[in-house]
Design a protein around this nucleic acid. Structure first.
Lengths: 210, 210
DNA sequence: TAGATTGTTAATCGATTAACAATC
DNA sequence: TAGATTGTTAATCGATTAACAATC
């Protein structure tokens, strides 16, 4: 079943795509036009066969023997594959230092996401701007999500408040939750949630230190 | 080869351990003493067989039929497995909003890491304190790493400066790099590096939004 | 005791890697 | 042309799942 619409692409494959994208954009910026899977693999410390398979998966035009792939084509193919064609609006919930870090990072636009506002319960930050983006009170969250057509909510509140702000966001129409609070969030099956578990990631690092 | 010292435990397994740990700590805080793998699996939306295998891997004392595992024992076994016995010192390189977010998060102590200081090139933040921890100039990095016996460096500088501060940290004796700059870092094979790729993680989320 | 739950061996599943013919 | 590189089928590898005897 090679249905074009089937989402049978593995998680690992999807995770590699933005890494290729960044690499290819860098190479393109250096003025390179064509690249072979072997070179990509060498530069990225990856398996050449895997790179070839990944490129074959997303590439609209075949690579040319002796020449490799056209970088510009690969970039737009990966962007298309990842759905970066139209940038989606996102809100940050919790304007603490982590939330503000996200607001200040311009790079997300290159990956299909545009943060338009943040929300907090702290009177001291409500009404302020971070990187030109407003911080509103939590009460405004539902109406703002509807009006801005935001699809993604980045949750950076403490553990105790995470589930309730998540529920509010989902009720207002959010379709994807990127959760940085140290707790698992429960959402309806129609909503995607990604629990970004920094403690788990740290474990992987420190486990290798024995 | 079932060598006790072999590091043949899969990445996926290690990543699950801190998640169990958090769950078990929560359950313990609720006053529960024993728990079965079936209950853990249900609560965590995981496979019961996988939970059993994971517990069998780390548990020093066998679980009891009808009763399950003693939570206190599991917690200390997982902590031991992950090497959380003695907390390791870490430094933050780059005291921007992301770096400050790490400095302010107390939870890392529960996962074996203690941030002792940050370093930056910006005169405005040098000399200040964040969450009681000092921000020093980059020049002090090498001597501080030696004196504090820091083993982990958390890199939160912009892409352009990442490799050079990484090199400085490695030369001073850092053994693990947790990299949040949007670039791959090259390190000697004796140093562990974990490139935390938020763009890739975002891709996984937005790809499901079609 | 009866039955829930464990620990472990075997089966399945899926991703990565190897091999190689096709081709520019 | 010769040879580097692609695309694809088959083999391997490793992780997850299933099955089931052991046991408290």
């Amino acid at each position: 079943m090679k249905d074009e619409n089937s989402i049978s692409v593995s998680k690992a494959t999807i995770l590699r795509m933005p890494v290729y994208l960044r690499y290819l954009r860098d190479e393109q910026a250096r003025g390179i036009e064509y690249i072979s899977s072997a070179v990509v693999a060498r530069d990225m410390n990856a398996s050449a066969i895997l790179v070839r398979k990944d490129f074959a998966l997303v590439s609209s035009s075949a690579g040319k023997p002796r020449l490799g792939f056209k970088i510009a084509g690969l970039i737009s193919d990966i962007e298309k594959f990842l759905g970066y064609g139209h940038v989606m609006n996102a809100v940050v919930i919790g304007a603490g230092s982590l939330g503000r870090a996200f607001m200040g990072y311009e790079g997300f636009k290159n990956y299909g996401m545009n943060i338009v506002a943040a929300f907090d319960v702290n009177d001291k930050v409500i009404g302020t701007f971070v990187a030109g983006k407003p911080v509103y009170s939590m009460e405004k969250l539902p109406s703002f999500i509807v009006e801005s057509e935001a699809r993604i909510a980045i949750i950076t509140v403490p553990k105790s408040g995470a589930q309730s702000v998540c529920n509010a966001a989902v009720n207002a129409g959010i379709k994807a939750i990127w959760n940085f609070a140290p707790t698992r969030l429960e959402v309806p099956s129609s909503v995607e949630v990604r629990n970004e578990d920094l403690a788990a990631s740290l474990a992987l690092l420190s486990s290798k230190l024995k």
